[in-house]
Computed example of a mutant assay.
Amino acid sequence: MTKQYAGPLSGPGAPPGHRHARSPAKRRSAYPYALYLPAAVVYVVIFLVPTVMAFYFALTRWTLFDSTFVGLDNFRDFLAEQNLRIGFQNTIFYAVATSGLKVVLGLLLGVLLTSRLRLRGFLRSVVFFPVLVSTVAVGITFSALLRPDTGLVNKVLALVGVDGPDWIGDANTALLSVALVDVWKGVGLATVIYIAGILSIPQDYYQAVAVDGGTAWHRFRHVTLPLSWPATYSVIILSFIGGLRSFDLIWTMTRGGPGFTSDTIASIIYKQYQAGFFGLSTAGNVLLFIIVTAIVVPLNHFLGKRQVAA
């Protein structure tokens, strides 16, 4: 029997062929981590550095050329803003309404556009098209369509004997009108996510339901709905974050009006910028960042646990 060598694989006592066996492996192990470097640099420059600077400038009264440290005064003044309570309520309502409608409509459209429709490809393009349009252009267009006297929406309603309201000029309908326009613009992205989720479901499940004599409702209830949960999870998180941070569509259509009835936290922050209170508005941005984080992180944890369970 040949005696096997049991000595060290590296060092002076190692066989010649094994002395440097680990060195190439160590060099190779650093290779995949080097691929992270460009993304890490972009992340630090684009996100971390501005975030740290925002936290600092929120503690100052600053202009383009000067800053004075004032501590927590900006946060106290922003929290004392008389319209902040209305803005917070509107922000939560807007986020819940838009994300909920995008989930429901996105799922229904996703089911429809994965069925055997003759014009399926064309309809997918039509549904996704509003996502590609500028938000400002959408806001300006719908502001014209929703005018009480000359708007196309009220003219169509008048043909069936309905007297349409002043959609964006009435305090009772302004925020809801903007939310519905937001859903119209964003539901295409939710639909695409659902289409991808539904197409990834193995056909074996649908065949099993068919063998058991199940109907289309049974296929949807017991296969599509539960197995498309990862898509639902993504749509909820993305839509809710977008709703909490929404500004451009609201500002384009209502500017927070009439009065302050459709103000959100983001529009209140922008009004402080317009008034020249840069430190105050920066503090508002920091508070909005904290609010979004405080809401989304637990929501993400809850939905993530349910996703694992599903």
Rank of each mutant, 00 (worst) to 15 (best):
P258S: 03
L249D: 00
T264P: 03
S246N: 14
T232Y: 09
L244P: 09
G242I: 05
G214L: 10
F220C: 08
I265W: 00
F260V: 15
I265Y: 02
L249Q: 00
I237P: 08
D248E: 15
P202T: 03
S200K: 12
V192H: 03
A208G: 10
I237M: 12
S234Y: 14
L238K: 04
D212K: 04
D248W: 03
P202V: 00
A208D: 03
F260H: 14
Y205L: 11
G243M: 05
F260G: 13
T224H: 10
W184H: 02
D212Q: 06
P230T: 10
I265R: 01
Y205Q: 08
P230I: 03
P226V: 05
R219S: 15
L249G: 01
R221D: 11
V235P: 05
V187P: 02
V192I: 12
T191I: 07
G197Q: 07
P258V: 00
F260I: 12
T254F: 05
P230W: 06
P226A: 07
P258I: 00
Y205S: 02
L238F: 09
G186W: 06
L225A: 15
T191C: 13
I250M: 10
I201D: 11
R219G: 15
I265D: 02
I250N: 05
A216H: 10
I265H: 02
L244V: 09
A231R: 12
P230S: 03
I195W: 01
Y206R: 10
S200G: 11
I195V: 10
W184G: 01
R255Q: 15
H218S: 14
D263M: 11
F220W: 14
W229M: 13
I195N: 02
T232F: 10
P226T: 06
I195K: 00
L227D: 06
I250W: 09
S234Q: 15
D263P: 05
G257Y: 06
L199Q: 14
A190I: 04
A208Q: 09
W251Q: 14
Q203M: 12
G188Y: 07
P202A: 06
G213R: 01
L249M: 04
S246R: 12
W229Q: 11
I193N: 09
Q207H: 13
Y205K: 03
I198C: 04
L227M: 14
V209M: 11
G256F: 08
G197N: 05
D248K: 03
A210P: 00
H218T: 14
G242W: 07
V235E: 09
Y233P: 01
V223W: 07
I265V: 15
F240K: 07
A196S: 13
D204S: 14
L189P: 02
D182L: 04
W229Y: 15
I237F: 03
M253C: 00
T261V: 03
Y205E: 06
A231Q: 12
D212F: 10
A266C: 00
T252E: 12
D204C: 00
I241P: 02
G214D: 08
Y194K: 08
